[in-house]
Design a protein around this nucleic acid. Structure first.
Length: 201
DNA sequence: CGAATTTGACCAGCGC
DNA sequence: GCGCTGGTCAAATTCG
């Protein structure tokens, strides 16, 4: 877990996913959820995430105080100061890591959501195909890699359960969907409302 | 039978 | 240079 542009902590006792939020988020980040813009991170308080995710800064906290924190990572490419450049453009084999010849590597922004959920597979309204799974250092749970199945849509996500808190699932999104959400979720509006609270800093 | 998942192999980046 | 780690590929397998 690194190179994240933002992590949103979302508490939920149901299977309804924050992923739905993130998917919506990825469609609208450029004009709505710019809180994690790297240019704004300097004034955020630091946050120690040394056990798992590293180099994360706390950028917001929910009023209920418990653990609904918003994070942004230190490692953000200068080219990703704006979400709007996250176009989901396809990577070719020679450019798997967004590296061009003679240029600094370009990373897409990533956005992670911490979810308190009993299930790993969260229905966010998009269709995903799993393309990999890896054991993660310092974590007894594997990380799963998914790609959006929509042709031409190159959005990826990673799903991982925290070792130190088995009730927490971290979903990391990379890229923006180039198509509408495929199905609605029951409490989408509720989730959106929470997101707006989080992003009101 | 087509789509999705599993899983070992492969590759690149990074730290030492 | 080497080993570790994260990310992806692709063949095999499973599922609907």
């Amino acid at each position: 877990m690194d190179n994240l542009d933002a992590i949103f902590h979302y508490s939920s006792s149901s299977t309804s996913p924050p992923a739905a939020v993130s998917s919506h988020l990825s469609l609208n980040m450029s004009n709505r959820y710019s809180l994690a813009d790297h240019s704004n991170t300097n004034h955020y308080s630091s946050y120690d995430q040394s056990d798992d995710d590293h180099d994360l800064r706390l950028i917001g906290e929910n009023e209920n105080g418990v653990s609904d924190n918003i994070f942004v990572a230190d490692h953000v490419s200068p080219t990703t100061n704006s979400f709007s450049n996250c176009d989901g453009s396809e990577l070719n084999t020679a450019n798997k890591l967004n590296v061009k010849k003679g240029e600094k590597k370009i990373r897409k922004p990533k956005y992670a959501f911490q979810t308190r959920s009993q299930v790993d597979i969260l229905d966010d309204g998009y269709r995903w195909r799993k393309y990999g799974q890896k054991a993660v250092k310092n974590n007894k749970f594997p990380r799963s890699y998914y790609r959006c199945t929509q042709p031409g849509c190159n959005v990826k996500k990673q799903v991982q359960r925290l070792s130190k808190d088995e009730g927490v699932v971290v979903t990391t999104y990379e890229g923006m969907h180039s198509h509408p959400i495929e199905k609605s979720t029951d409490n989408f509006e509720h989730i959106l409302t929470q997101m707006q609270i989080y992003s009101s800093c």
